[in-house]
């Protein structure tokens, strides 16, 4: 469901971008980014097979 929310939020961002409300687009864009990064940290839990 989390991904569906992000995709719907992005669709809403695109629709707002079609109008003349740049500030709202930036706010929605930032929310989508934060949610994506939060979801990334939730799912990216496996250790990477790397050594430096």
């Amino acid at each position: 469901m989390n991904f569906a929310v992000i995709f719907l939020l992005l669709a809403a961002t695109m629709l707002v971008a079609g109008r003349r409300d740049a500030r709202l687009v930036y706010v929605l864009f930032a929310i989508a980014m934060v949610l994506s990064i939060a979801l990334y940290f939730h799912h990216a839990t496996s250790g990477l097979p790397l050594s430096f």
């Binding site: 991904f3 995709f7 992005l10 961002t13 695109m14 971008a17 989508a32 980014m33 994506s36």
Partner: peptide
């Protein structure tokens, strides 16, 4: 995929 959608904004 979400990042590609974000790329479109």
């Amino acid at each position: 995929r979400a990042a590609f959608c974000t790329l479109a904004v």
